[in-house]
């Protein structure tokens, strides 16, 4: 390979990705950070503002609320998608006639545009017009009727539910792949040792699927930070910015309020948070790997 690895070849092969990536991703981050130190309305000149924007972020109660909301969505999604995705994959593993059909159906929500997903769920979750409350009412369970969206508490939980609905099929398919790679022999060995179904799952399947869990968790985290249309469609971040996520709050501040500088400060803070999260994640994974 030495012979083919001339500098010129390497250069040609890497440069296209490198340039596009650097310009649109890296440079964008730098631009965002630059503007985060300014006051800018989108027109004219950006005025230097020092760290004032960041001080404001710290004091901004809407920011902390949006952070809390994002946290709720993240934690719920991690829990539900990993557990249910895993369980579903286990169920799907067993050879059955309807398996493929079920797999395809459950996967289909992830094909649909998120805006449309949001629209669908408005008609389910809206406290007045949505069918969830209507069904509860008809069933006589009036006490269970809630302000699923539009209230001050439940909205982030609903985002997690919708995210779950959309991603479950997709992620459980990934789990399925990972599970299918576990050799039969190990199960047979376990059976010989007298393990029952449950023990097999816990002591064989889970550890062997570690790599898959990693990928799924990574996908969940990146996915949560991509949630946008659900929020805008369901609640518009409201009422009064109480159900924003950090991503939507940064967007609203930038584009609706025309406070580009402050919006970019928020964006930079989000970026730093995701960096920290991914570092923590990497560290944990590295430790675990060393343990192994």
């Amino acid at each position: 390979m030495h012979w083919l690895s001339k500098k010129r070849n390497l250069f040609v092969m890497i440069v296209p990705s490198f340039v596009i990536y650097t310009v649109y991703i890296i440079a964008s981050v730098c631009i965002a950070v630059y503007y985060s130190f300014t006051k800018y309305t989108g027109i004219g000149k950006a005025a230097w503002n020092g760290i004032e924007n960041y001080v404001r972020v710290f004091h901004d109660k809407f920011f902390w609320i949006s952070l809390k909301n994002t946290g709720i969505v993240l934690i719920l999604s991690l829990l539900t998608l990993t557990i249910f995705g895993f369980l579903l994959a286990n169920v799907l593993r067993v050879k059955r006639r309807g398996n493929d059909l079920c797999k395809a159906l459950i996967f289909s929500p992830s094909i649909i545009s998120p805006i449309i997903v949001g629209i669908i769920w408005i008609y389910i979750l809206d406290p007045e017009v949505g069918i969830l409350n209507q069904i509860l009412y008809k069933l006589g369970k009036e006490g269970w009727m809630q302000m699923w969206i539009g209230g001050t508490v439940l909205s982030p939980y609903m985002y997690a539910v919708i995210f779950l609905w959309r991603q479950l099929g997709y992620l459980s398919t990934i789990f399925l792949a990972g599970l299918n790679m576990i050799p039969e022999e190990i199960y047979e060995a376990a059976e010989i040792d007298g393990a029952n179904a449950f023990q097999k799952m816990v002591y064989v399947t889970v550890p062997m699927a570690r790599n898959t869990f990693n990928i799924v968790i990574l996908l969940i985290i990146t996915g949560v930070f991509k949630i946008f249309e659900f929020v805008t469609q369901l609640t518009a971040g409201g009422p009064n910015h109480l159900s924003e996520t950090v991503v939507t709050y940064s967007y609203t501040t930038t584009f609706s309020n025309g406070e580009y500088g402050y919006g970019m400060a928020l964006a930079t803070v989000v970026f730093i948070i995701t960096l920290i999260l991914s570092e923590i994640y990497n560290l944990i994974m590295r430790d675990k790997e060393e343990e192994q």
Partner: peptide, 9 residues
């Protein structure tokens, strides 16, 4: 005076 679902409509 206002509808109960003012925040969701």
């Amino acid at each position: 005076a206002f509808p109960s679902n003012i925040t969701t409509q």
